[in-house]
Design a protein around this nucleic acid. Sequence first.
RNA 1: GGAGAGAUGGCAGAGUGGUCGAAUGCGGUGGUCUUGAAAACCAUUGUACAGCAAUGUACCGGGGGUUCGAAUCCCUCUCUCUCCGCCA
Length: 423
Amino acid sequence: MLQVQFLRDNRNEIIERLKIKNFNESLVINQVISLDDKRKSIQSESDELLARSNTIAKEIGILFKSDKREEANCLKEESLRIKEKTKALQSSLLEIQNELRELLVKIPNVPHHLVPSGKSDADNVIVKEHGKIPELSEYKKPHWDLCSQYNLIDFELGNKITGAGFPVYTNKGAKLQRALISYFLDKNTEAGYIEYQPPHLVNEDSGFGTGQLPDKEGQMYHIKEDNLYLIPTAEVPVTNFFRNVILNKEDFPIKCTAFTPCFRREAGSYGKDVRGLNRLHQFDKVEIVQIQHPDKSYETLNVMVDHVSSILEELELPYRILRLCGGDLSFTSALTYDFEVYSAGQDRWLEVSSVSNFESYQSNRLKLRFKNLNGKTQLCHTLNGSALALPRIFAALVENNQTESGIKIPKALQEYTRFNIID
RNA sequence: GGAGAGAUGGCAGAGUGGUCGAAUGCGGUGGUCUUGAAAACCAUUGUACAGCAAUGUACCGGGGGUUCGAAUCCCUCUCUCUCCGCCA
């Protein structure tokens, strides 16, 4: 959510830049500003009336004590008249505030200057490519075949007990998964992130705080009886740790990492992309979250990108980094870098991480602030990224390292798996 | 699931209808004293909105009501805690 003051101060620039995100409703922005004008005038009118009725109430108290009944009754009447007026003003104020919020929630975050224009993922810009695409034999297999050949994942069993998109890991597959989680968490804590194990269910306020609610309601699993949502990413609980918090400037940067399963309904996803581990309803992910001073958030974004790169390099996976174009950028993000690894069994790039700077867009919803040098409260910047999403890493590792004698485990992982080949 | 208790400022904890945005203690910040520190003492210390400012308004878990006036009374919701039962 953008701040109204920010919209006022930068109206034309914001309208221009939002076009990059294919948001062309400049009307909404004008509406917000004029509604806010209305809000201000009604509020000051109502404040004046309330001030009068407060003084009246005090006077009545004094009059009663000195037994001046008649004068008191006179004031009572005036107070009742004021009360009627303020009641009407308050209710229209509430209406305006709701309307204002509804409009504000519709305006996406303003894209950063680096964001290229474009309509779809085809327009994303490759900013870096690293590693050699492995040359496999003509008998190479996709991971779903390898997983059943080596007994790593039982997709059918998942279908039986839950449904499609809920794989069951087994044997060395389960061990590899566990190894990856530990490895990622260790990498992140070595880089200074504090490890958390958050709840996997969150309340409505948390869903709103990070921007999943109200628009992406249908993408989360919802438990009606308790009005709780299964988290679609650890970003939701972890970032919401800091909802309604005022930090001191020396608290920066706040760095958190958490492993959680992620639950996504993926309503409306069909087609061949969903085969095997490519798209799941439940998957594991290790997330990194940072809260930063606004002046340092872009510097931090780069550091996070480098951190994710270093993990992929250690895993010896060929990857590329994309700067998302306006059309592919998420509603809440100002700048996002996607990481894709090459999965040689399927011969395609798989997204394994998405590192974003939300600037103050989430903070404004979360009411996450800090005291600046003038002692004023100011919104923080929030950032997050995957480090890393498990299933596609799993898929790429299995596919890229397949040999006739088995699947080789990269060196960096061996101390975690305690085996160096799956055969 | 049954029974009960509670929700007040960063924390602890007073406050049962008018001068309560809220005592007191702790903590934080600034200062005095000191070679330095501690102690002691003094001052200061919530958030939001409007305003150049003075200041005004709102907020004592959320929502609603009674009243000229509510932290205080009433209704309702949520959450937390304790005991019993069940259970990883």
